[in-house]
Design a protein around this nucleic acid. Sequence first.
DNA 1: ACACGTTATACACTCGTATGTACTATCTAA
DNA 2: TTAGATAGTACATACGAGTGTATAACGTGT
Lengths: 339, 339
Amino acid sequence: MGESRERVTRADVAKLAGVSETIVSYVINNNRYVARDKRKRVEEAVKELNYRPNNMARALKGKQSNQLLFIADHITNEYFSSIVSEMDKYAYDSGYLISLCANRNSSEFISQVISRQYDGIIISSASFPAEYVEQFSQAGIPVVVYKRIRYHQFSGNVAMLGTGLYEGARKAVRHLISRGCRNIVYADRISARGHVSPPDDLRFGGFVDEMEANGFLVGKENIVCGCHNQEELEEEIKRRLRMGSQVDGIFGRNDMIACIAMTAAGQIGLRIPEDIKVIGFDDSSISRFCSPKLSTISLKQKEIAKATVEMITRMVGGEHVEDVNFDTTLIERESTAVR
Amino acid sequence: MGESRERVTRADVAKLAGVSETIVSYVINNNRYVARDKRKRVEEAVKELNYRPNNMARALKGKQSNQLLFIADHITNEYFSSIVSEMDKYAYDSGYLISLCANRNSSEFISQVISRQYDGIIISSASFPAEYVEQFSQAGIPVVVYKRIRYHQFSGNVAMLGTGLYEGARKAVRHLISRGCRNIVYADRISARGHVSPPDDLRFGGFVDEMEANGFLVGKENIVCGCHNQEELEEEIKRRLRMGSQVDGIFGRNDMIACIAMTAAGQIGLRIPEDIKVIGFDDSSISRFCSPKLSTISLKQKEIAKATVEMITRMVGGEHVEDVNFDTTLIERESTAVR
DNA sequence: ACACGTTATACACTCGTATGTACTATCTAA
DNA sequence: TTAGATAGTACATACGAGTGTATAACGTGT
């Protein structure tokens, strides 16, 4: 059961075509003179035997492995999965297949990865140590880092790609302000382990900068963070909204947070957008299906994915690649409408 | 810039430890007698040089590639991404990394994949040709197929995993009926290319069977399908709900479809769940954030992922693996509540 | 006639690893 | 004492492919 049929190798093709293995190799890689008739015979034999050069052998011999690795900490995110999905499309056309894994924070993991000879690595993890990135780079692997944190600089063959977090956050805040909000709260992520976004987080940074640029000082009262679960966040939001405070706008770190905030607001009888306006981030599907429909910031996953593959392809070819930044699109829906 | 540091090989370790390469190999693989002192020297050298055996060379030599491939047609689905995410956890502990790609329907793709020597392949695509599965199997690659269609049988080393589609669909219908619905409509997927779920689709089959088991005949009037976009689906749903028809329940193929159905119902003034009850499928995040909150069927992604890795691991070891079936959990929320 | 460039082929080595096999030294049982 | 098992090591080959280099045939210009 499950007879493991012999693998078809170059030798088989050579035999069938009546030429040497070398000729087969030349035909496959199309990099040497080959007589027309032999080339044809080889091509036929390849088809007949359904031969395809073994990827492992090729990679070993120093060629590319034709694999890319995407390291992210929340693969489940619709935002990430759509990037991966798009990347898969572009990458496949360039002969790449994409691997995926969560960030393991250990040097063991790093050498794991290095030993697999990926042609390129994409990292989108705020908690990914800079030294590890440099290890990849030193191992000769091109790295594209999706910028999540300010002031990150890497030496070596590392390209930074700004996905629009900072610019998008500013845009979101600006939108709330333009809608009349004067007392905006930033709702940070939920983390079972109590993780809080680092102070130099780009989204949070965008919030602060845009607030201050408009003359609003940001203090503790403008930030909800450190919640361990949905209930805790709801309670915290409600606490902020009661307190007789003037809060009239909420910027959720992502759409889910924003939705939870809307739920909380609803529970204490506040109307959205009349009493309080809410905006999310990511333009994920819940933003279109929640009620009221959530205004949000849409990132350009498609373009980001395409650019990523292009950058890595070029870096593999030895080119130096400039950092890239993408902007975002404000999606206005009901949660920030004027009424 | 980006100095490609020399790769550390077994030879380097051997040199530093003052032993032969063979000894290093034995220590690494722990499969031969090695004198204690030499073993220690090797281990130290490995650490010092941060050596890790090259995965490509290992795979070439006939060992495993330690890579799994997940082929799915809608990676973006929260359902799939959570399975992948969970699989990543279990797989990593067994030394595997996961690759991901959409289904390309060509034999070119198949040999692409085969040439990459995956240790196992997981397929969750209704449109994946059976003959391709068998090609994998014949190439000696264990395959786990997530069952999407009835009556699928494969020869060779192929294991089927039922994720609960059929059973879950029946459960959903049963729930609607128990809530008093007597005129239930099945809302099929949206497909830009006009694809309709095949007649032997497990979810649809579960719908039909449970309907008939309860004495309800299923006809065209119970099915909405073939819509190309959201607007079209909304219109079609509205048409069904007006028409003076008695429709009192909608079973959405997934949560998004169900949400769209709810939107459509709301647009023509129907109240949920008073006038019409709706249930979705997948328990994705929108089901918790839409309004009213959507009752749905929750699949056991975690268990499925774990089982998948286990099955493949065992199949790699040459074991025969029995097919597995998972059940589902009904999540009751507002959209089917009794009022 | 000769030199030279072009076309075309194949040998032999290499990538980094695993392991069958052969070999030696030491120890145990009879 | 001797045969046989056990501990320990190393050579040589293989996995499947890419390519430097050598070689030969052929055409062209002088």
